[in-house]
């Protein structure tokens, strides 16, 4: 089903991207996981409306979509902060002080694991290995990696994002730009 035939909840660009995506595979269901991830990038999380549209696009049931979505840890059914700070605490990072980083962030942001700051700018999450072991400790803010961290470097990273959020607010950009 193309976006032309039905009202899409996605932006025209994403809608067009999805139209093309399903054609890349021998079986269109293969587009499911990328679709969910890209939809989440735009909408912020997998709302019922997102799930419904994806199910329709791929001729799946909403149950199918939910079952697959809930398997993958990057996919979520609730919103997070504009900048989702993911701290790896797995072994390589742990050995190099990841828990200190995590605690530092907890104090600094005033939130715990899976918490969202009151202004909605940051959320914090302890995550499993993100594949940056040799440059530990590391965090990922949305999709951006920040490695070889110390508490001071973390402060700089957070400050930079806070400034970016401020600029975005001032320009009135959408929260998920």
């Amino acid at each position: 089903m193309s976006s032309a035939e039905t009202m899409s909840i996605f932006s025209p660009a994403l809608s067009a991207r999805f139209d093309a995506l399903v054609l890349k595979y021998p079986v269109k269901r293969s587009a499911l996981i990328p679709m969910m991830l890209y939809a989440q990038d735009e909408v912020g999380y997998l709302s019922d409306a997102v799930i419904e549209e994806i199910a329709q696009r791929l001729d799946l049931t909403m149950l199918d979509v939910r079952n697959v979505a809930s398997y993958y840890s990057m996919l979520r059914f609730k919103p997070v902060g504009k900048y989702n700070v993911q701290v790896c605490t797995n072994i390589s990072c742990m050995l190099r002080g990841a828990y200190d980083i995590f605690e530092h962030l907890e104090e600094k942001l005033g939130i715990g694991h899976k918490g969202i700051t009151a202004d909605g700018v940051f959320s914090l999450e302890e995550v499993e290995c993100i594949g940056v072991c040799c440059w530990a400790p590391a965090i990922q803010v949305n999709y951006d990696f920040h490695d070889d961290l110390t508490n001071d470097k973390v402060d700089e990273v957070i400050a930079a994002y806070r400034a970016k959020a401020g600029r975005a607010d001032a320009k009135g950009e959408s929260a998920n730009a």
């Binding site: 049931t61 149950l63 199918d64 939910r66 079952n67 809930s70 398997y71």
Partner: peptide, 9 residues
């Protein structure tokens, strides 16, 4: 009917 599935992991 396909009304049941497996969620989470």
């Amino acid at each position: 009917v396909w009304a049941l599935g497996i969620a989470n992991r």
